[in-house]
Structure formats: C-alpha cells, structure tokens
Design a protein around this nucleic acid. Sequence first.
DNA 1: TGACAGGGGGTGT
DNA 2: ACACCCCCTGTC
Length: 296
Amino acid sequence: MGETHAVITPGWTGWQPLALSPTPNAAVLAEIIDGGQAFRWERQGDLWTGQWDGHIASLRRGERGQLEWGAPSAATGPALLRYLDGNGDPQALADSLPWRSDAHLARCLAAFPGLRILRQPFGETLLGFLCSATKQIVQIKQMMALLARRHGAGVTGNRNRLPTWDEIAAIPEAELRGCLLGFRARYIHQTAQHLAAHPGWLEETEILPYAEAKARLVTLPGVGEKVADCVLLFGAGRLEAFPVDVWILKTMAARYGLDGWKPAQVAQFGRAHFGPLAGLAQQYLFAWERAEARRD
DNA sequence: TGACAGGGGGTGT
DNA sequence: ACACCCCCTGTC
C-alpha cells in the first residue's frame, strides 16, 4: 500500500457502545465492512476505520467483546447506525431464508451469525462498483483511496472524503486514469457527465421499485446487470437483488450442481431458490467461500 | 530482493 | 469471443 489512510485515535467522541444485535464477532464484522460490500474500511490491528458520506468512524471490540465506535463528530453516531442497518434484524432476516431445506445455506448461516447487508450512500456505492470490474477488493480500495485523497478534499470537514458525482464530472478523464482506474476511468467519466446532465437522476432511481431502478442503472456506461444489482443491494437495501459474478457462478456450480449454467440462468435459479432475500443469501455464500479459501 | 508472467468479483462491441 | 487497463500476487 503506497497510500496512507486517515488514522483515527480515540479522543473525539470517546468510545461509545454500538447497539448491533446480535453483536458480530471479529470474523463477521470483517465480512460486513470489508467483505466486498464496501471499499472504504481499513484495519489497524484490532481497530477498523471507515468513511462514507463525509463521515469518519472507528470500530473496535471492547474488553468484553462488545462493539464500540468513535468519531470526530457526535453526528456520526446516527449516521453509523443507519450505515450498518442498525435497526434491521439480521437474525429474523436469516431465519426467513430457506435454510430448512438447504443444508449448505444452513451451515453458512450458522458460521456467520449476524451478517448484515450495509445501507451505504447510493452514489458512493455506484462509484465503488464502477471500479470493481475484474478487480479484487484490495485493488478497488486503492482506487477509492486515491480518488478520495486527490479529488475529495472538501472545504470543511473530512478532508479525505470521496468526490461527489458533481465533482467527478469536473475531473478530466486523464486524471481519473491516474487513480489506477484503467479503462474504468472512461465509464466513470461518462457516468458523471450523464448524472450532471440529469439532476435528481440518482435520487429518483434510488427510490424506484427494484426492477425499474435496475433498468435505469444499466443505461449508465459501465453498469451492467451485475454492477446494478450490487448498487441496489449494498446501496439501497434491495435484498432481492442477486448479483451474479464469476465467484457466485463457481459457488453455485460447486454447491448446487449448476455446472455450465449461464449467468442469467443462475440469476433465475437464485431468485427462485433463495426468494426475496436472495442478496442476503448470496452474502452468506460469499463469506463461506472466502473462509474456505483462507483455510487452504 | 527484484524481475516476470499470469490473471483479475465486468462491460461493450 | 475479445478488447479494455494495469496493479496485485505468486513464483523463480
């Protein structure tokens, strides 16, 4: 990592208890904030520091295993709770997945109790997944960190925030390429131009029903079905979105016998098999496969 | 410790 | 099917 990140030390709000139920253990917490949903969290030892929507917050586990947060601003408290979907009930959601008739899903749920889908800012989520094509999490995080460092410095407040879409629209494509974006720079540049030319487009899209919102998102350059589903799942709380990428293709082939199925077929299977919370199920499947990959 | 392939959580043509 | 970019990772 050539770039340094904002280093947070206790002292601003002080450490406050974070009311998440159930309290995620260390592995589940890592899956929630650094498992491919978000790309703006960094770990320093036992301390996680993350950024979204101009906020900076740190998370840690206290001496009795309880979760604690700290931030430069007390206003971050409610924002953090929303970001983590703190009012949601992951136990109840998981219980309504078809684990009773799906042994693999059942062991995934048992292995990652309290796994959550984040409620990230819609625009930032779009930016993150426009960066994601053929990139792994560590590389996407580098792109986002560079975008923030070079182009997100605001007049006040967080000086390492991501640039807004309006700000990105004013950045020459060549400078975007300098942020390790590669061919994604053109997509991001063109998407920014589209959004600048259509004020309110993102806000309207976010509140549309799932199918309509997805249909609109895929009209953006660089946004296909997979990226659109990720944006709606992780940035708009649409748990029915079921993003199909090469990893879910492999997982479904290995665990559900779907060898040779095409993405559209796997998507249809996923919706039919997992139901209206298919996106949550997908996140459990990912967590399982990642843990297994680390075991090797 | 440094060079060198190989491949990467997709989209557009 | 293949190009698009170019950084990470593993390997020698």
